[in-house]
Design a protein around this nucleic acid. Sequence first.
RNA 1: GGGGAGAUACCUAAGUGGCCAACAGGGAUGGAUUGUAAAUCCAUUGGCUCCGCCUUCAGAGGUUCGAAUCCUCUUCUCCCCA
Length: 400
Amino acid sequence: MGKTMSLLQEIQRLSSEIISADQLEKMLTQSAAGGAPLRVKFGIDPTFTDVHLGHAVPIRLLRLFQKHGHLPVLIIGDGTARLGDPTGRNDQRPPLTEKDVARNSATYLEQIGTLVDLSPGASEVRQNSEWFGKMDFFDCLKLASASTAARLLEREDFKNRMRENLPVHLHEMMYPLMQGYDSVQVCADVELGGNDQLFNLHMGRQMQERAGQRPQVCITTPLLMGTDGRKMSKSYGNHVGLNANPNDMYGKVMSLSDEGMGEWFRLATDFSDAEIAVFLSGHPRLAKDALAQSIVGGIYSVKAAVSAADAFIQQFRNNETPADIPLKKIAVGSYALPALLKDVGLGASTTETRRLIAGGGVRMNGTVIQDVNYLVQIEADGEALLLQVGKRRFVHVLAN
RNA sequence: GGGGAGAUACCUAAGUGGCCAACAGGGAUGGAUUGUAAAUCCAUUGGCUCCGCCUUCAGAGGUUCGAAUCCUCUUCUCCCCA
């Protein structure tokens, strides 16, 4: 009983809303008293390949359930991905091809696998095309009859879009129904999602009730804000990808604004509230270092985290060159510096690289070059040339 | 089906015949500084064979010495009516 209570508390710490906590407590108690493990559903849309730390919050919660003997049921939304979850979007997502979906699903599972044990028996992984692929148009109509236009339009982002005179497509309104139907198909006991998913999770309860099942408990988790305080999103460039290499991941976390640290500690690390308080009362840079190391350590290893921290100090505090610099081979000859920079991938256009040069952002073997017309000789047996743009883009150039 | 409004660079959003490669804000990038890729300040933000040239303002035509701005058609969206 005490064990159930502490699990419940841990769950509450990572969640923003539980519908309902009483029901969850009952389920946990029942399960602990020899009942079946809870089927904890978490759905992901393989719409793009990057899973970031924001997604990791519900995944961490999923792991918590798994650690206590419950069964994660992962739904790969390969059926729903064809239309795209409208949540948080001002316009609809472009539809994906089957190939995109397959590739994205694979990388998703790989990245989620860093946090949750996905082996058969420990988890269940399902694709919702399994049931949606079999449905014909009449089944689809039947699904649509499960809700009403008014009910679906209650959704926050639909309401907003209607108010702003932006399009809301009919198929988008099907999305919550499909997600709800997934819950019916896998007989979910609990469903997890970010707190923008509340509406969709509720739909699962309704549809299960309609189908004569026990309605699932819905748990939403707070959304982890991006490094700049806005919603974490790849398109804002403020995300920390789970597949980022340790050094990048460490650096990205270090770019988090000081104000965001408390929440990141709570949602993305295993530190207790007391430990977090100690960090936050100390020096912000040290606190952020601990945060970054903990995050990198959790996904990779403590060793990787320590070395990422060292590399970071070396590169940004001491302005030394990093250890791993990509090497580009290039034909022997004489190059205008802007064109050379562009050729080795340090800029998208010569106009851009010219600006960087003029702005004092380009170094060659450690020396700032501000002459836009500078000519570089690439010799057959010469030493590797070190090109640097800004503080973190380095390339070695060698004749091939 | 009828009537009206709209589509501008990564995003938001000005501009309604020349002063527009296009105001402003956000973001991004570079520089200075520091406690970090925090904060703050400054600069840059279509391309090129770069002190000049080329291609942009949903798409295609047209009017004009000259168009993001005017006209015609097309595509897409929103609103009102049916």
